[in-house]
Write a protein that binds this DNA or RNA. Structure first.
Lengths: 143, 143
DNA sequence: TAAAGGTTTTTGGCAACCCTAACACGGTGA
DNA sequence: TCACCGTGTTAGGGTTGCCAAAAACCTTTA
């Protein structure tokens, strides 16, 4: 199997499907469309492409599932998403909605090195100077 | 004049042109192509679009210039680029090349709020616990 | 000044994504 | 069981961006 190239957009579709599966159990075209903010035909296009790449199990009118490979990509992306959002909120004190928005884009580009380093940084700061961090986050609320 | 929509890619073209103008004085198709990692015809396509949007002065075979509006967008993007790279390197201790790469993407998506907050954070940490920061950055070098 | 060589532009095409309109499917209620 | 209605799919098109090949341009040099 070739080094499948997954576009940013495809990664987003996989992540949406992963979240749906996690939360609702079933993955439906309509729900993917809502999350992705597109119309159903676009979802079908995407599903066909993803199926060709072996990332999704898809037969028309049948149930939709992520394959092992697809799930892996989705999970990696999703975990970056969760972490980045948390970092923006807990360390930088960014409003959750904005943090969410920024994380949602950055998650598709950020390198592993950077994520790892951000994790180490968060841990380090929270352990070494929790008081200073608290002070920083407090100042913001007072503005 | 309408709220011109500038795509991420167009923003990148503008930034490339801005940098060329800043460093070399002249902006040439060939050089834009090299920076953008595309072939010359793609650059010409982009220039036409940008000219239509009033962001670039472009007449074929003539010199290429950013308009005031184009320069403004480029400058904003570029300054985010510079800051984000600096943040990744100076605060998180990420290798310059990787910092550059990540900044190069994030700069097109990051919200103003987040940039502002990152700046405040950098300042705060550097002033309030410079020693802890130094220690964090040192540890990384030792791995 | 004319040919050479590099640069720029045009042409024609391809891939990723998205949409509207129309059609197919399938579960539900009368 | 059949008509209905929501959901899913196809058909047909549009935009953005990119490319290779070939044509146009311009500068430089013989």
């Amino acid at each position: 199997m070739r080094p499948l190239e997954v576009t940013k957009r495809e990664e987003e579709y996989l992540e949406a499907m992963y979240i749906l599966h996690k939360n609702k159990g079933v993955i439906r075209v309509k729900d993917i469309a809502k999350i992705m903010n597109v119309k159903p035909p676009s979802v079908v296009d995407a599903l066909k492409k993803l199926a060709e790449k072996g990332l999704v199990e898809y037969e028309k009118y049948d149930r939709i599932l992520l394959t092992e490979a697809g799930r892996k990509i989705a999970e990696e992306t999703y975990s970056k998403h969760v972490f980045l959002t948390k970092f923006f909120v807990d360390i930088l004190g960014i409003p959750p909605e904005i943090a969410e928005h920024d994380a949602c884009q950055f998650e598709h580009y950020v390198s592993e090195v950077t994520v790892k380093r951000m994790k180490e940084f968060a841990k380090f700061i929270q352990e070494q100077c929790p008081y200073v961090l608290k002070q920083f986050l407090k100042e913001k609320l007072e503005e």
